[in-house]
Design a protein around this nucleic acid. Sequence first.
DNA 1: AATTCTACAAACCGACGAGTCGGTCAATAC
DNA 2: GTATTGACCGACTCGTCGGTTTGTAGAATT
Lengths: 205, 205
Amino acid sequence: MQKNIKRMATMQRMQVTGLELFYKNGFYNTSVDDILKELDLSKGAFYYHFDSKEDFFIQIIENLLVRKVYSMLIEPVEGHSNTTDLIMKCYDDALETAVHNEMDFGFVLGNFIGEFNGRNPKIMKHLNDIIRIWEVNLVSVIQRGKFEGHIDRHADAEGVALFIMSSFMGVRTLMVETAPSARKYRFMSQLRVFLKSIENKQPVL
Amino acid sequence: MQKNIKRMATMQRMQVTGLELFYKNGFYNTSVDDILKELDLSKGAFYYHFDSKEDFFIQIIENLLVRKVYSMLIEPVEGHSNTTDLIMKCYDDALETAVHNEMDFGFVLGNFIGEFNGRNPKIMKHLNDIIRIWEVNLVSVIQRGKFEGHIDRHADAEGVALFIMSSFMGVRTLMVETAPSARKYRFMSQLRVFLKSIENKQPVL
DNA sequence: AATTCTACAAACCGACGAGTCGGTCAATAC
DNA sequence: GTATTGACCGACTCGTCGGTTTGTAGAATT
């Protein structure tokens, strides 16, 4: 059983640094050797654990990306306070990690979609699955907000979800290299304006 | 003078197909040979006209990208009707070309920024210049809207501009592969909601 | 008519990248 | 104590890619 632990540990290490480098340099622009150099491991080790670079990346998606999206973009909005407050807090936190140049997974997702779109349908499918999970969750959160009286019942939940996701992914692109902190602040203000505009004007008391 | 015309024609052909392929497959994932194959030209022709692949790309930015952004995202909002109407029409048109899978340059920009970020500062500078032009223009259009009484004078022009640009670039990412037409419609509806919320409530008559 | 220059063609180079394969070595099984 | 297996090493293959060099048909110049 001990070996299985070692196996898992090595695979985990590879995946973590793999995601880091793929995020920084892109998938096609990061060689397997780049990853291995960082870990003092050899080609043999890599291809002992993974079938191919593509297989490796898919396992990264399943093991790391999905979970991070859950913990950063899904679970935080599933609390029971006011819907718009939850959403504001969630994306404020997500953008804060972005300001500090850490991996925020909305951007990671957007980048990878840009990179694989039209080039690798297999990987695109996995990435789209994550987007769909994110979207479904946001839609249901907004619908819950409508039921609970926080959000105007005339609001289009799918539209609102799409708009939030879009603007979030977009602002991440605009935050690279130009005043990330100021742009975060401006963005959050406008997101609040938008969310205010779909709040229920006759709140349930 | 005739030779200069031929020279320009060949360079133009290279740049146009270059941009197309870079857009479809990414810069690093498109080889110079890929472009030349499409045009029945040889390496010699390419390196006769351009110093390097990077120089080639920078010329594409200056000659094609900048102009397209002007004609698609800047000039359309510089008319003299109602500001929000102009903005709506402009981004509706831009997303329509996106639906038809043609090159829309907001997405092109976003993709390239993702690809070059942290890897090629020189090219990043050129791309950021375009973003800045786009942003400055949007901000001034919104400020004009405030002066002319279409837009609430309390609105934060920089914030609104950023929010529009962000959401536009983001929705483009989400339009690839999943219901582009439906998402365009939903997005435009929400953009209208947002723009309504910053319209001047006591319009000048 | 001879020469020079333009606009390419074609072969080639060195570096790099994914994937392979024979070998190693420690741990475990018997 | 020997056989087996899991985890890994590192050299090698083969294709690709950015860039170079040499050559040359035809236009322009003299």
